[in-house]
Design a binder for these strands. Structure first.
Ligand code: FES
Ligand code: FES
Lengths: 132, 132
DNA sequence: GATAAAGGATACCACAATAGTATCATTTAT
DNA sequence: ATAAATGATACTATTGTGGTATCCTTTATC
């Protein structure tokens, strides 16, 4: 099981790099050079970051990307939400077949508790805190 | 991202069912009938549970499976270990490229903390606690 | 205005992991 | 002997992840 997939990983790297540029616009060629990420894949990733309001995009010659909001307000949780779309640990595991008691499945409650913790922690990890 | 895969899910169901039988030997046909799990898949799963010391197996006519240890001492964590072999949330994420400071990667530290919590919680969920 | 350098959109491909099947061999109660 | 069970193992199908390729639109600059 991977918590952080390739998309998320690359997105993180790119965002950290861009964040360090303090608002300067960064284009894909530079990112590819510095981060050694396959170009078409990186482009796809950046496009989705743009679509989800994490990056601002500037088209045309001299264009590129910069952060759409302060690095302090971009969280690992946001990236998970983008790339592992609506991930959750707690599907209905037994399809109600073996649920110990119908109203409160002990297992579901426990998994939910774990999930809440994980989500809380992920929503505390900001880009800013990684390049600090 | 799935915490609990199909294997683990089915294993859980089967173990709960078997546990409820209080030591009586249960054979695959009964499990298939009751749990509606594809037979060959279930057999594979039970075999691996046997191989890992979770179930005792009895061959021949009238054979089947029973728990190899008390339901209190079989944990969700064990199943994860069997089916998501040596899973971990924290690979070296940046391959040292963007590590904020070489000695202590802030991200790795945070992910490790999450992982420890998850593992601890999973090692508290026993079969007994699910059928209680 | 032509051109080149950027991103936007979208369809496609490759590989690995997950989920599930099939077959034959071995054991054992009757 | 036979039938009912598991053991072992190889195979197949489906899905998700990781990655490419192509064509279109926008814009700075000459
Ligand atoms: S059976 Fe649906 S969550 Fe327990
Ligand atoms: S770069 Fe390896 S864990 Fe931070």
């Amino acid at each position: 099981m991977k918590l952080i997939t390739r998309d998320t990983d690359y997105a993180l790297r790119a965002l950290c790099f861009i964040a360090k540029k303090n608002g300067k616009i960064v284009a894909v060629p530079e990112l590819v050079r510095e981060l050694k990420i396959p170009r078409p894949f990186l482009r796809k990733i950046l496009q989705s970051l743009h679509k989800h309001g994490v990056l601002s995009a500037y088209k045309g010659a001299g264009g590129g990307f910069k952060l759409a909001k302060p690095a302090k307000r971009i969280f690992l949780f946001d990236l998970l939400a983008i790339y592992q779309q609506d991930w959750h640990l707690n599907e209905c595991l037994f399809k109600k077949m073996l649920c110990p008691n119908v109203r409160k499945c002990a297992l579901k409650k426990k998994i939910d508790k774990i999930e809440r913790f994980v989500k809380k922690e992920l929503s505390l990890i900001s880009i800013a805190s990684l390049i600090g």
